[in-house]
Design a binder for these strands. Structure first.
Lengths: 114, 114
DNA sequence: CCGAATCCTACATGATACTG
DNA sequence: CAGTATCATGTAGGATTCGG
C-alpha cells in the first residue's frame, strides 16, 4: 500500500499517523468490514456473503491489513473442514466509538440538508 | 432498530453515508488539507506551499470536493491581484473533534507498540 | 472451506504548460 | 495569483482460476 513519505517532513508525526489511518480506513471495503465485524466474529465465507461484490483477493488483502494493524484477529480451528473466524481486537473496539461519532456527524449533516 | 432491509441493499443508509465520508477523507491530501485549514484560512498558493507535492489539478479537485460537501468555504476578493482564501465551514469545524479523537487514538496505539 | 496466483482495466495522481 | 487543459503512468481493485 503506497503511502509515500516525502523526505522533507510536511506534517507532524501524529498527523501523518492519522492520515495513514484515514487512508487505510478510507480504502474500499475496510469501513464496511469493520462495521460487520463489530457485530460479532464472522467467518471468511460469511464476509464474502455480506460483501457480495468483493473479490477473494481483496477480501484477503483487507483482512491481512486489519490483522497487521491489530484491528482484527484471526482465529482458526484445526478441525476439518477448517473454520476461520475474524474478530475485532481490543484496538479495533477502540475504533468503534470514533467511527460511531463519525456516523452520527454524517447523519446529522445529512438531515440538515432537507 | 431491527427494521428489515431490501435484499439488494448492501449496507444501511447511515453506514453508507459514513463509508462515503471515510472514502472521501481517506483520499490523498484531504486529511492534510483539513488539518492545515483548521489552523486558519489559507490561500491557494499557501496550500500549494504547505503541500509541496500536490499538483494544481489535484489541489483544485480536492478543494472543490471540500466546498461541495460544505466542509470548506471559498472566499474571494474582487481586488487585483485577486485573492482567494479557503476557510473551514461550521460543518468542517464539527469534523475537527472527530479527527482529533482519531489522532489521539492512533497515537495511543502507536505508543503501546514500544 | 479458505485462501493464493494471475491477468486485466479503470481511475487516481502527477508533471507540465498555459490562461484570465 | 488562481486556476484549467493535456498527457502520461502506477496502482488499486475486479474477474477468474487453481491449490491445501
Amino acid at each position: 500500500m503506497g503511502s509515500p513519505m516525502p523526505e522533507t517532513t510536511v506534517c507532524r508525526p501524529d498527523e501523518c499517523l492519522a492520515e495513514d489511518w484515514l487512508g487505510f480506513l478510507g480504502h474500499r471495503w475496510n469501513a464496511l468490514l469493520l462495521w460487520h465485524l463489530s457485530g460479532g466474529p464472522k467467518r471468511y465465507s460469511e464476509l464474502q456473503a455480506l460483501l457480495p461484490r468483493i473479490s477473494p483477493k481483496v477480501l484477503t488483502e483487507r483482512l491481512a491489513g486489519m490483522t497487521g494493524r491489530d484491528l482484527v484477529r484471526r482465529v482458526e480451528s484445526n478441525v476439518y473442514p477448517r473454520e476461520v473466524s475474524y474478530v475485532l481486537s481490543p484496538r479495533g473496539e477502540g475504533l468503534r466509538g470514533i467511527l460511531s461519532d463519525l456516523y452520527d456527524w454524517a447523519e446529522a449533516g445529512d438531515m440538515a440538508k432537507s
